[in-house]
Write a protein that binds this DNA or RNA. Structure first.
Length: 640
RNA sequence: GCCGGCAUAGCUCAACUGGCAGAGCAACGGAUUUGUAAUCCGUAGGUUUGGGGUUCGAUUCCCCAUGCCGGCUCCA
């Protein structure tokens, strides 16, 4: 009789082979109610599956990521059932769980409307109330194909034909609805209690624009209504932080038709922030032993032939232009120029490493439909750098880059990171030995900092392994900005070398790296991370001097000028308005410090500061406040 | 690029099924000289994204264009 080992290490014996549902019931009534599926020796299975041998068993509930995924997957089937009942001629295709919910793609004669969604959702509620059991059934391949063809479900038939022969074909049925699916699924529709259909969108069959456009319905589902409500609140919060909205409201940047989509205009207030970012960037890079380069925005197309961009990157490049009957290309990357600088003279092993950085503006062709605020643009500035080093310098260089990356991201207020390491893909250039050595160096550099990483086996570029660092923002969203990539390809293509100790020519290793990635995109992320409430060192206006009446204008201007002379960004508001009016306005504009100046302040040579949380400090001498502001700016404090 | 939705004053949004295009904020002018999140009064602001069509009449209905928004390989 099966002896089962539970996750806590305890054992349970059964007199006859139990189903997973029975196992859950044996553990506890509460668990039986919340059980969605089970895990047997690490394999997810339906609750009704029978365990007939000793095994490690865990019951899966919606409290775990796996359980939530099952719940969402089952909800997508529930939606497909509702759609088939309401629109019988719609063909089902695929419907997986995704990051924040699920979707299902249908082939239907017309697009679904928002009204359709409401109707589908209502039908789903009915199906939940009916609490239909969800049953798995294994079927012979040919019979399954015949069955789906008979039902008019040609996509499903196509999918079955492509399933490897050694895999079993399983169907899931609930009520009159049957779908091809690997499973597992929740035991019944009654378990799907909290869901919402979000939107309709077009999506190509298999994501290929050569294929037919299907109708995709996105939805989300959670364990209970409370979690669903929390998610919807999160979406509202994200919308409030939308950098496109804040960018307009705070007059930071614009993107205008007259200039072109995806081309960013930085307004004065946005440019102040960018300057603060760039100043910091220059300072840290100087300290980290980098030199700076400036290179052109376009080059003879031949350069891009040599670099391989014409062959491998054409889709992302703008069309070349003709200059004196020669083709020129606006740059999508900076690296070829840096290589030309390297190659401009003979290099010795004693010169290496070179660390060359450039805030290089590049232009890439993106489909008009994918442009999105500052996040997806056609012209952007990379905080790019290229390191040329010897093989035995890789680890040290990577380690230093990682250090600089984390220092930079931390300074901008990001505390949580996820590091991904991508290794050699099937199709790639370079010898095994160098790949192994480089990959080991990357791992070593990560380990040295005591950090953990997620390995993406075979996920590297064809020209070298890489480390990507993702940041988590204030509301838990993940963004990838930093990337550190080894390149065994470009040095080869440009045939760059250095003279070694042995007097022979050797190939240097090239490292591409960007910490913020694109300044535009990073700026967008910062806006959303801080919801526009920039820390002092980034704030476009760090302090606003507010007068009580016109009688205090003179002192207000003196205050402003003294603080400006100290290097702070300070403005005055001398308008003939009540102080509460001015405070409200500048508080809403997210100015970190408001310095109130009236009779007493003028008489004593001070200001009455109010911080961004409305805290009043009382009358303080101007010099004291100046030092406090300078300290806050100098330390790049992100607290509060 | 493709699919769907949307486009009204600088901004946020109204205008029932086709019937005189409006409000708040912002701007500007005036009064008020004010102590910690909105002082009052007034003025101006529009080819309702652009073009075409249906209609006695179009912000509203239809077609085209442009832009924006949400999506477009997270695999049964």
């Amino acid at each position: 009789m099966p002896r089962l080992t539970l996750p806590d290490g305890t054992h349970k014996e059964f007199s006859s082979p139990p189903t997973l549902a029975q196992v859950a019931a044996a553990i506890g009534a509460g668990l039986a109610r919340s059980a969605l599926a089970g895990k047997v020796d690490g394999r997810l299975m339906d609750l009704e599956s029978v365990i007939d041998a000793d095994a490690e068993v865990a019951i899966v509930t919606a409290a775990t990521p796996e359980g939530l995924e099952i719940l969402r997957h089952s909800t997508s089937h529930l939606m497909a059932q509702a759609v088939k009942e309401l629109f019988p001629t719609a063909q089902v295709t695929i419907g997986p769980a995704v990051a924040d919910g699920f979707y299902y793609d249908f082939d239907y004669e017309r697009p679904f409307t928002p009204e359709d969604l409401t109707a589908i959702e209502a039908r789903m509620e009915q199906l939940v109330a009916a609490d239909l059991p969800i049953r798995r059934q294994v079927m012979d391949r040919e019979a399954a194909i015949e069955r789906f063809v008979a039902m008019g479900e040609h996509y499903k038939a196509e999918i079955i034909r492509e399933i490897p022969a050694d895999q079993e074909i399983s169907l899931y049925g609930q009520g009159g609805f049957v779908d091809l699916c690997r499973g597992p699924h929740a035991p019944s529709t009654g378990r799907l209690k909290a869901f919402k259909l979000m939107r309709v969108a077009g999506a190509y069959w298999r994501g290929d624009s050569a294929n037919k456009m299907l109708q995709r319905i996105y939805g989300t589902a959670f364990a209970d209504k409370k979690a669903l409500a929390a998610y919807l609140t999160f979406l509202e919060e994200a919308a409030k932080r939308d950098h496109r909205r804040l960018g307009k409201e705070m007059d930071l940047f614009s993107i205008q038709d007259e200039a072109g989509g995806g081309l960013v205009l930085w307004h004065p207030m946005g440019a102040r922030i960018r300057q603060a970012i760039e100043d910091y960037w220059k300072q840290t890079h100087r300290e980290a032993g980098y030199e700076f380069l400036f290179t052109p925005h376009m080059a003879n197309l031949d350069l891009w032939r040599t670099s391989g961009h014409v062959d491998f990157y054409r889709e992302s490049m703008f069309n070349p232009m003709t200059v004196d009957e020669q083709a020129y290309q606006i740059r999508p990357m900076n690296c070829p120029f840096h290589i030309l600088v390297y190659r401009s003279r003979i290099r010795s092993h004693k010169d290496l490493p070179f660390r060359w950085a450039e805030l290089g503006t590049v232009y890439r062709y993106e489909l008009s439909g994918v442009l999105h605020g500052l996040f997806r643009v056609r012209g952007f500035t990379q905080d790019d750098a290229h390191i040329f080093c010897r093989e035995n310098q890789i680890e040290e260089e990577i380690s230093a880059i990682l250090e600089l990356t984390l220092q930079t991201l931390t300074t901008f207020g990001f505390k949580d990171f996820e590091i991904n390491l991508s290794t050699r893909p099937a199709k790639s250039v370079g010898e095994d030995a160098i790949w192994d050595k480089a990959t080991a160096a990357l791992k070593g550099a990560i380990a040295e900092r005591g950090l953990t990483f997620i390995e993406d086996v075979g996920g590297g570029a064809f020209y070298g392994p890489k480390i990507d660092v993702k940041i988590l923002d204030a509301i838990g969203r993940k963004w990838q900005c930093s990337t550190i990539q080894l390149d065994f390809n470009l040095p080869e293509r440009f045939d760059i070398t250095y003279i070694g100790e042995d007097g022979a020519r050797h190939r240097p290793i090239m490292i591409h790296r960007a910490l913020m990635g694109s300044l535009e995109r990073f700026f967008g992320i910062l806006i959303e991370h801080y919801a526009g409430h920039f820390p002092l060192w980034l704030a476009p206006v760090q302090a606003m001097v507010l007068t009580i009446t016109e009688a205090h204008n003179e002192w207000a201007i003196q205050v402003r000028d003294q603080l400006r002379d100290a290097g702070l960004r300070v403005e005055t508001d001398l308008r003939n308005q009540k102080i509460s009016y001015k405070i409200r306005e500048h508080a809403m504009r997210r100015t970190p410090w408001l310095l109130i100046v009236g009779e007493r302040e003028q008489a004593e040579g001070g200001v009455s500061p109010r911080d961004r949380h409305g805290k009043e400090l009382g009358l303080v001498p101007l010099a004291t406040m100046r030092e406090r502001l300078l300290e806050e700016a100098r330390t790049r404090a992100v607290g509060q």
